[in-house]
Every structure is written in structure tokens, then in C-alpha cells.
């Protein structure tokens, strides 16, 4: 494992393998992926459906464990963590957004945003301010008491973003965040993610299959095929923009 540049590194995966058993056959969903993301970097994971993008993201999120290989995030090796420590890691280090938003339908937007603070044991007094701040940041300061079913898809995804950032994670993992949105709303969400990436210096790893979006927003594009890294391209244009 590379030791130099560790302090600038947010995520590093080393030969990560994750396969699923289907009957007798092993399906290698992720098959030896080594990938590094620097702090504050915006990486787009591209690939055809079934190429293992979500599986890799879930491994980095600590929701799943690799069959072999190592995943180091912010200096700690996920393989050495107990499941309780992994939960703690998800609470404080990772924020996640999904294609299908995954808001709890019976909770208001504010309650959805409060949920990760409950698990992180944020003091009650602090919660209100942090929740309001997060919702205002995504432009939903006046919709806090609404339920997800009363909101448009774009608004739901913005609420999900507020929920993902409320515990101030260093890493944002987004699995096709615009997949369920029209292109205009999708761009709004992407703008928001880029803003979080820049102002909060969150490292972003975003799964998408829309190359155009990836090229427009990401610093680097990583291509997966059949669970393997098949290509990588640095988005020079974006990189210049990122360094301002």
C-alpha cells in the first residue's frame, strides 16, 4: 500500500474482490479493483449496468465486506473494523445518496435529516440548528415539515443530500443520484453536489452511467467492466476549475 501522499488520500482500495454465489457459480461483482481518491476529489464511476459499480460503492461505504483486498478510508482499514465500528464509520465518515432517494416515507423531511444525528448521538440542542442548516443549504428550509410523498423527485433528492451531509462526513457516496430525475433536475442536483464538494471539501464518489454528466462535473472518470477497472481518464477541464 502506498504510504506517500496518505495525508492527501481519502479512499484507497487494493485488489478488492467481492463475488456473489448463485447456485454453484460465482459471480465476480467486483473483481480486483484498486482505486485511490484524493481528498476533495470528485470521482465518477462509469460502466454498464451490472458492471459492479454499486457493489464497489457499498464496499467503500462499509455496508458490505470484500471477500479479499483492502479498503482504507481516511486512514483506517475497514477490514479490521467490527460491525459496530463500521456502523460508527458510516455515521461519521460517510454520507450516502441513492437513485431512489431512500427517504423514510413516514417521516417529515426534518425527521429524515434528524435520523443520522440520532445514530451519531448528536445532542438534542444542536440537532435543530444542524438540521435546519443542512436543509437550507439544499434550498428546502421552508419544506421541513413536509413528507417525502408531498415532494418532487428533485426535492426528495435534495433532502437526501441534506441528510447525507448533516453529520459532516468527509466522503459522499452517490449511487446514480440523477437516475430517477429529468435532465434539468439532474443538473440541479449535480450542481449541488459539486457545491458540497467544493465548499465542504467532501470527497465525492458518484456512480453514473451518463458520461456527459460525469465529464461535466467529475475530476476523474473511472470505468468499470465486469467488475474490473477498464479505464480511467482525468478530466483536465474540470481539474483546472477545481483548483480555481
Amino acid at each position: 500500500m502506498a504510504t506517500n501522499g496518505t495525508e492527501f488520500e481519502s479512499v484507497r482500495t487494493v485488489s478488492v474482490v467481492r463475488h456473489y454465489k448463485l447456485g454453484r457459480t460465482l459471480i465476480p461483482a467486483v473483481d480486483g479493483v484498486s482505486l485511490a481518491a484524493g481528498r476533495g476529489e470528485f470521482i465518477a464511476l462509469l460502466g454498464a449496468s451490472g458492471s459492479g459499480k454499486s457493489t464497489l460503492l457499498n464496499l467503500i461505504a462499509g455496508l458490505d465486506r470484500p471477500d479479499s483486498g483492502a479498503i482504507v478510508v481516511e486512514g483506517s482499514d475497514l477490514a479490521t473494523m467490527s460491525s459496530e465500528q463500521l456502523a460508527q464509520y458510516r455515521r461519521h465518515t460517510v454520507g450516502m445518496v441513492f437513485q431512489s432517494f431512500n427517504l423514510v416515507p413516514t417521516m417529515t423531511l426534518y425527521e429524515n435529516v434528524e435520523l443520522p444525528m440520532r445514530f451519531a448521538e448528536v445532542k438534542r440542542k444542536e440537532r435543530r440548528a444542524r438540521g435546519v442548516e443542512a436543509l437550507e443549504r439544499v434550498g428546502l428550509g421552508d419544506r421541513m415539515q413536509h413528507r417525502p410523498s408531498e415532494m418532487s423527485g428533485g426535492e426528495q433528492q435534495r433532502a437526501a443530500l441534506a441528510r447525507a451531509l448533516v453529520n459532516r462526513p468527509k466522503l459522499l457516496l452517490a449511487d446514480e443520484p440523477t437516475g430517477n430525475l429529468d435532465s434539468k433536475t439532474g443538473k440541479e442536483i449535480m450542481d449541488l453536489i459539486r457545491e458540497l464538494n467544493r465548499t465542504l471539501e467532501m470527497t465525492v464518489i458518484m456512480v453514473t452511467h451518463e458520461r456527459s454528466l460525469a465529464e461535466r462535473y467529475a475530476n476523474r472518470l473511472v470505468f468499470l467492466g465486469d467488475g474490473k477497472l477498464v479505464g480511467e481518464s482525468v478530466n483536465e477541464l474540470e481539474k483546472i476549475g477545481a483548483t480555481r
Partner: peptide, 11 residues
């Protein structure tokens, strides 16, 4: 969702 947001098995 709760687990993704940081709930432990124990929670």
C-alpha cells in the same frame, strides 16, 4: 436506510 445512515445492528 437506517443501517446506511449509521445504525448499528444493536441499534
Amino acid at each position: 436506510i437506517m443501517k446506511a445512515l449509521g445504525a448499528s445492528d444493536g441499534d
